[in-house]
């Protein structure tokens, strides 16, 4: 991270950090517009845009009708012709209504046109379970979009990354999809002042360790770190990698860690089958790092189920700290 112009660090919530990034972008680049449902005076369903409309007005902080497909397409067309839209889906689940524009248009236009035009579009997706909002407001569909060449897909897990990766996304000439776990919005952490970027496509080693590697995404990074603290008390030294970007995936960081520890657990909230963990596992299995493995690779992902409403059931279908702890202990002790 380039800290040269950002020496002052204070604590912000994840939502505040995103808002600060958008504030900087709106203030420094007239091409930037925010678009989304109820992002104006309401401030967004999760209060991420907050009061930005007061500072920039309704032409820059645009409430769209409840028209996800059309709204996404307007953002695509605007990005092709000179604006830098940041499009907020109210819930990532609602992006299913806009898949045509995301998958067929935004992701493919540059390619289909032989490089004649780029689509510098940023889309934000409040994602994940834990809010009691049930099956249509709690999904983790990042792997769907991670399957689409032409898109970049990121999952910042800290306020500092949320700001720096959004600013990086705005500098990127291609469409960047940002999945923000709703439970993270209120999480506080140090955030540098001013403009800085954190690169897309680069994982972060959040905790160094020698006994096993836990590769986690988004909220699961924090659960993995909590599990790693417990593991340390039992003499197991876990390395925790925050993947941060699922497309393009940081192969080097993951493989280097696996070569060092010889054990791998993948932890992610999206449905386990055909998910992010499958790709990480395959990446290791297809590389020389496979020869360093002392145990089978283990995946902890979402259950093969929609997200239930009841809070105990809701917890039961996504990995929790004890699940990670158990899996890591078994793996480290050679029982898996």
């Amino acid at each position: 991270m380039n800290m040269q112009n950002a020496p002052d660090i204070r604590e912000l919530s994840y939502a505040e950090a995103i808002r600060e990034a958008m504030d900087i972008a709106l203030g420094s680049d007239e091409r930037v517009v925010l678009m989304g449902e109820d992002i104006g005076v309401y401030g967004g369903a999760f209060q991420v845009t907050g009061d930005l409309i007061d500072k920039y007005g309704p032409d820059r902080v645009m409430d769209t009708p409840i028209s996800e497909l059309g709204g996404a397409g307007v953002a695509v067309g605007a990005a092709m012709t000179g604006l830098r839209p940041i499009f907020e889906f109210q819930f990532s689940d609602f992006a299913t209504l806009a898949m045509e524009q995301i998958v067929n248009q935004a992701a493919k236009i540059r390619f289909m046109l032989g490089g004649a035009v780029s689509v510098p579009l940023v889309m934000r997706f409040p994602a994940g379970s834990g809010t009691g909002a049930a099956a249509q407001h709690s999904q983790s569909i990042e792997a769907w979009l991670g399957h689409v060449p032409g898109l970049k897909v990121i999952q910042p897990s800290t306020p500092e990354d949320a700001k720096g990766m959004l600013l990086a996304a705005l500098e990127d000439p291609d469409p960047v999809m940002i999945f923000e776990h709703k439970i993270l919005y209120k999480m506080r952490g140090p955030v540098p002042e001013g403009h800085y970027t954190i690169p897309i496509g680069k994982a972060a080693v959040r905790r160094e360790g020698k006994d096993l590697t836990i590769v986690a995404t988004s909220l699961m990074v924090h659960k993995a770190l909590a599990a790693a603290d417990d593991l340390a008390q039992n003499g197991i030294d876990a390395e925790v990698i925050d993947l941060r970007t699922i497309r393009p995936m940081d192969r080097d960081t993951v493989l280097a860690s696996v070569r060092k520890t010889g054990r791998l657990i993948c932890v992610y909230e999206g449905v386990k089958t055909l998910g992010v963990g499958a790709e990480i596992s395959a990446m290791v299995a297809e590389s020389d790092a496979f020869d360093y493995l002392d145990a089978p690779i283990f995946r902890l992902g979402g259950a093969e189920s929609p997200i239930p409403y009841n809070p105990e059931l809701e917890k039961a279908v996504v990995p929790q700290v004890p699940d990670i702890l158990n899996a890591a202990t078994e793996l480290a002790q050679g029982r898996l």
Partner: peptide, 8 residues
Amino acid sequence: PIAVGAAL
């Protein structure tokens, strides 16, 4: 929708 975006 892309045309509307270009008009925007």
